[in-house]
Simulated assay, not measured.
Amino acid sequence: MEIYALFGSSGTGKSSSALELAHRYKIDAIIDDGILIYQGRKAAGASAKYEKTKIQAVKRAIFFYHDQAEDVRQALRTLPIERLLILATSQRMISRIVDALGLPPVSHNISIESIKPEDEIKAARFVRETQGKHVIPIPRVEVEKDFLQRLIHSAQQILSPRKEIIGESTVVYPPFSGGRIQIYEQVLKKIVQHVCCRFPQVAQVHKTKYLFADLPRLHVSISLRLPFGASIPTCTMTIQQALYEELDYCFSILPSSIDFTIVSLEVQTE
């Protein structure tokens, strides 16, 4: 059995990247937070994401409990797995999982930073910290079968280039996640207004729209007042950079995109 390992700190988007990585390297199975996933379905184990405390969750994730570890070991002996991907927060944690399950040494160590851009990692952390969302890379129906009383937020289907289903992911809210932080839209609008007012070229801010469902995205509609011959792209890029830095400073948000719609343009001839 060939062992792959994907490691990175909590909330960096490892679970949401696992299915794409599995498809890329033709990986048959994934071990993530205490469960063995084979061909997109849970095969054995119990998810650490449903433990009540973080300590219990860590123990579950490293297969500290004998019955859980034996359940997964038995499945690993039975299933025709050629390549296995282990997800963990560190290489030390990966070593503990490998030892607990009696697996061969890791052949390929992959850090989340090597496959995911910094802005996406920071966006994933933002979603984890503010909304308490955790991803399990198995279909929603599999989660519901095991945890009928749990609240499932959404499910996302991952498709290969040939449009065949290679797996799904389910978003859940673990009891130990510590709740959610809410940022009011009006506060974000005030920040955009404040930043734009620093620039005399901005005559008016008309509308501000935010999307945080996936990656943080910002869309602003403005009117500009520019001297004749001034570059509109240069002006908007300067404002974009200022907004980017302000959102990062205030909320540790790195927007995936900041888009402008120029509603009107006043050209100054003098």
Rank of each mutant, 00 (worst) to 15 (best):
P161N: 11
D259M: 11
R128E: 01
Q68E: 15
A124V: 05
F64E: 06
D119P: 06
L6F: 02
Q193Y: 05
M93P: 06
A48L: 05
S47C: 13
Q56A: 14
K52S: 14
Q204I: 08
K190C: 04
R162P: 05
E82F: 10
F251I: 07
V135C: 12
P200F: 05
A69T: 04
K59S: 05
V267I: 05
I81W: 14
Y249P: 08
G229L: 12
Q182R: 14
R60P: 07
E164T: 15
F212E: 03
M1E: 14
V143I: 15
T269M: 06
E82V: 10
S264E: 09
I110V: 07
D214K: 09
I158R: 03
A61I: 01
R125V: 08
L188V: 13
S16N: 03
C197W: 07
S221F: 04
T238A: 10
H206K: 11
G34A: 10
R96P: 04
H194C: 08
Y244S: 03
V267P: 03
S264P: 00
Y65D: 12
E51V: 08
L21S: 07
I239P: 00
I35K: 00
A75V: 06
E120V: 04
E51G: 08
T130Q: 01
I166K: 02
V267W: 10
Q74F: 05
A213L: 13
S257C: 08
S16T: 05
Q193A: 05
D71W: 08
I158E: 11
L148V: 09
Y50T: 14
P117F: 00
G40H: 03
Q157E: 12
E266V: 08
I158F: 02
A213S: 12
L159H: 14
L101N: 04
D259F: 11
Y65S: 08
P104M: 01
I262F: 08
E118F: 01
D33T: 08
G34C: 02
L218E: 02
E142Q: 14
E2K: 12
V127A: 08
K26P: 05
T53K: 12
T208M: 06
V205M: 04
V98R: 00
S252F: 10
E266I: 09
M1G: 14
I27S: 04
I152V: 14
L151P: 08
T12F: 07
C197Y: 12
C235E: 00
T269C: 06
Y210A: 01
Y38S: 13
I30D: 15
S114V: 00
R92G: 11
Q149T: 09
Y249Q: 11
V143C: 09
R125M: 13
P139H: 15
E20Q: 12
A75L: 09
S107G: 13
K42D: 12
V263L: 07
Q39K: 14
F212H: 01
Q268N: 10
I3C: 02
M1S: 14
S114F: 00
P233Q: 15
M93L: 11
D71P: 09
R41C: 13
L103S: 06
T170G: 01
H134N: 09
A48M: 10
Q240N: 13
F63E: 03
S15V: 04
S264T: 09
L19Q: 06
G102S: 10
I158Y: 03
A5H: 00
S223E: 02
T261D: 15
I158L: 07
K209S: 01
K59G: 03
R24L: 07
I97Y: 03
A213K: 14
